[in-house]
């Protein structure tokens, strides 16, 4: 019988498709009967969504690219 602690430990494997068939069935069954784990798994998915929605670093400017190209060419020609 799996516990809420197991659900918490395996949430990433479960959501990323790395759980075995028997683990997936046990997990699904536990979620059917456990309000706390349904809430946890849902909010864990929201967390993953938040992580992927955070901003990126900006693209390099033309000046930055020019100066880097210049350095690389200089090193290459040495």
């Amino acid at each position: 019988m799996i516990t809420c602690r197991d659900i918490c430990d395996r949430a990433t494997d479960h959501l990323d498709g790395n759980a075995s068939l028997s683990q997936r069935i046990a997990l699904r069954f536990h979620l059917l009967i456990c309000k706390g784990c349904r809430r946890f798994v849902h909010q864990f998915q929201l967390t993953i969504g938040v992580a992927s929605s955070l901003g990126s670093t900006g693209d390099p400017t033309d000046e930055e690219i020019d100066s880097l190209v210049e350095r690389l060419v200089r090193v290459r020609n040495q």
Binding site: C4, R5, R39
Partner: peptide, 28 residues
């Protein structure tokens, strides 16, 4: 932190806190 959130039988104690927002965009 997470090892202290379960009782001796491995069940949540207390249940995870219910968040107000229901999508990543709403949270952010």
């Amino acid at each position: 932190h997470f090892t202290t959130r379960f009782d001796s039988t491995g069940h949540w104690s207390p249940l995870p806190f219910q968040w107000d927002e229901d999508s990543p965009d709403d949270l952010l």
